[in-house]
Computed example of a mutant assay.
Amino acid sequence: MSAIAFIALDTEEVRALQNGAPDANGQTPERHISDGDGVPCRHCQRDVGKGEAYLILNYRPFPALQPYAESGPIFIHAEPCERYAATSETPDMFFKNGRRYLIKGYYANDRIAYGTGTIVAPEDMEKAAARILERSDIAYVHVRSALNNCYQLRIERAG
């Protein structure tokens, strides 16, 4: 099975958004205060704590516009946080509240590889992503919320 790495949002991109750069819709991210329930930061891969400020913004995890370049809402801490280190272990945050995830493979041209999409529990994510990445034509896997389709992170081959 392929060795994998969970890849969080790039720090440079996150810092720009935290400093007011426009999101994928060209809007300034909205600032809110967390109630401590279900506000997962896509940079540090931790939930934003109760009373902490966070940003809601539209994010497109693709380099260019094209028919498969999905975008949607995500959360990040409003203040700088440390990026989640690329690792082969599913982030702890994924195991909270019975969350489920949609994972799907993409080709190098950023198009969805039909037939790769599957809903997984956090404890099954590493193996399921590794199986998708065993296909030589798959470049990476996206992880999204199964309930709201919100982007979580990217999974690549390790190394």
Rank of each mutant, 00 (worst) to 15 (best):
H142M: 08
A129P: 05
M125G: 00
R144T: 04
A129W: 00
D110I: 02
S136L: 09
E134Y: 04
E126I: 01
E134H: 06
E123I: 03
Y107Q: 03
A108V: 09
S136N: 12
M125K: 01
I132S: 02
I119V: 15
I132F: 04
R135G: 10
N149I: 10
P122S: 04
T118V: 15
R135H: 13
R111L: 06
N149E: 12
I138R: 00
D124H: 11
A130F: 08
S145K: 07
Y106S: 11
A128D: 11
R135A: 11
G115Y: 10
I138H: 02
Y140N: 07
Y106V: 03
H142A: 00
R135S: 10
D124R: 10
V143K: 03
L133V: 04
E123K: 06
Y107A: 13
S145I: 06
D124P: 04
N109C: 06
G117M: 15
Y107W: 10
N149T: 14
V120E: 00
A121F: 03
E123H: 09
A121T: 11
R111E: 12
N149R: 08
N109S: 12
Y140K: 10
L133H: 02
E123L: 03
R111I: 05
T118R: 07
Y114F: 09
A121Q: 13
S136I: 09
V120M: 04
E126Q: 14
Y140S: 12
E126D: 12
A139Y: 11
N148K: 14
M125T: 08
I119K: 02
A113D: 07
V141F: 06
K127I: 08
